[in-house]
Design a protein around this nucleic acid. Structure first.
Lengths: 317, 317
DNA sequence: GATGTTGCGGTCAGAATATGGCCACATCTG
DNA sequence: CAGATGTGGCCATATTCTGACCGCAACATC
């Protein structure tokens, strides 16, 4: 056979039936020498196909993936969920080479083969019916995730360059503890050896990751979960904002749906709101969507900034 | 790349995702010359894979559906992506019984068994290292998705009750065409037989789904993709906004990162921005984070509303 | 334990195939 | 129409593949 790739695909097609084939049979089918067949088998193994053999009388080659799969382990819903998880993950990011979303896109097209036969038809139907919109979020490297997970389990210290918000990179040497996924971003909770304190890093900003051989003694996590710590970190730079709004509580609650604000009715038409914000900017949408007068009691810096922005808005024309 | 077959399998894995790839992208990914890529594409076509192309701007290669593919093995990254897809999907929703996210959570604990032995250790490591935060989004039923997909393939008419924004339910009889995932929500694009027009439904608001035995004759989709139709629906109420900002283009691009704005530099310190918004409120954050003067040329309604809001901000105290 | 039948992997000379660069051309979009 | 994409022929060179040969390993049967 003149074309290697075609022959490999033909060999795969035969083996994927799950049947056992003797070397002689495959040699005849593929029209190659026994030695070449053995090379082809080696090649498939190198690609990750688990071809098993038995020498001696009745010897044969067989592709074990089909028979090794546990049947009925994933129920229908779980199989569908696997597919959907990959579909949505593959649409979250920019498909950068080596990224998790890129790998998800590839797996999305392959995962059928790991499903029981009766579910494959359904998976095909679902795939044909489905479209996902791209969500712009930072891509992360699968390699980095896996390396960090390994370092965590073995308690290995890692070093990396970390690109901050201003674009400058600093070298870090840390004890990694947890990965956290929050709001489409992946974070690493780690103990920073230079700062002698806990730090949270965005994984998409980590470059040049190196795992060292030195190990660290685990210390208790700063909070019950890494997610709690991440949330605390987000709260650290927030100020307590107190404002009064000339609107009834339900209307205010609606405007503050996406923020954890404490709301107290002062009257039928007036509500007091207390919340934490790191910057006055985030108040704008709440106040804009509320067609009501309001007073910012504190902090005074917010009040000043809002007034300055108001002046900017009015200076047009 | 040293091994042709492996490269062909990699090319197949990329193309089978159904996505369009430009020649440059495939060249970069496969690390071959453009000429070699074209030969590879020819090779795939010779094997019977229907690769379609489009020359000219936005030109690309795409594998059209419907072809039986050789069994493709999940590589390391893809296996990790499968796990991560399930982790993030299981955290998206309220884990209602019968929902996709609940099924994802169950599958998350089982998927190791589909991985080659060498990857199981890694999957366990990664799982142990990972936390995901719950994203509040509507849960959808896996059964509904699957039933709809089946109805789409067989061209069966379906009926269901649809709960609108005001909480009232209406009966619908539709020809289903596509599922769309957009901004954490799942939608159904269908032809509404009562309205004799296309409609988009949120799947979490569908109850009492019944598939009937009557079939429908397919009609052309209203747009190239269902996603385009969904976006058009979202765009319908959007106005073209034109503004000039006294800031350099990079600063403006940064402020408008999350919006599809067309930016044109008018000078070193002045930039023109054109974008579509359904309401002026969404301009506030862009303008607030940009510490620069600006002029809203159109629409005049936005200009008036922004000035009124500015007055509101200044009337405090 | 001996025998026969299978699969295994290294080596070699010659044959076959693949590659990138170059080019003129076709097709599509704005 | 200009620019950006895909197309396919040609060529010299580099790379890979092949069958034959060989000694060996693993298995089932007698």
């Amino acid at each position: 056979m003149a074309d290697v790739t075609q022959r490999i695909l033909a060999l795969l097609a035969m083996l994927q039936t799950g049947r056992a084939f003797s070397g002689d049979e495959l040699v005849a089918r593929l029209d190659v020498s026994p030695r070449t067949l053995r090379r082809d088998i080696d090649r498939l193994r190198a690609y990750g196909y688990p071809v098993t053999t038995q020498p001696g009388p009745g010897g044969h080659y067989r592709l074990t993936a089909g028979t090794a799969l546990p049947p009925l382990v994933l129920d229908d819903d779980e199989a569908i969920a696997t597919l959907l998880g990959l579909a949505t993950l593959s649409a979250t990011g920019r498909a950068a080479e080596g990224s998790v979303d890129e790998a998800a896109a590839r797996a999305y097209g392959k995962v059928d083969q790991y499903l029981p036969k009766r579910l494959r038809h359904r998976a095909g139907q679902l795939r044909a019916s489905l479209e996902t919109s791209t969500t712009l979020a930072p891509s992360i490297s699968a390699d980095v995730l896996v390396s960090l997970a390994d370092a965590m389990q073995r308690r290995h210290v890692v070093t990396f360059d970390y690109v901050g918000k201003d674009g400058s990179a600093t070298s870090r040497r840390v004890h990694p503890y947890r990965h956290v996924h929050h709001n489409l971003r992946w974070y690493l909770l780690a103990w920073d050896t230079h700062k002698s304190d806990w730090r949270v890093f965005r994984i998409d900003r980590i470059t040049g990751l190196q795992t060292s051989t030195s190990t660290y003694t685990p210390r208790p996590l700063p909070t019950d979960t890494a997610l709690d710590y991440l949330r605390q970190g987000l709260d650290k730079d927030r100020e307590r904002v107190v404002l009064t709004i000339d609107a009834p509580l339900p209307a205010v609650a609606d405007a503050f749906t996406y923020q954890e604000a404490e709301l107290v009715p002062l009257s039928d038409q007036r509500t007091r709101a207390v919340l934490k914000l790191d910057t006055w900017h985030w108040l704008l949408l709440n106040l804009a969507f509320l067609d009501a007068d309001f007073t910012v009691h504190e902090p005074s810096g917010f009040r000043t900034a809002l007034r300055a922005f108001g002046a900017r808005l009015m200076d047009r024309e």
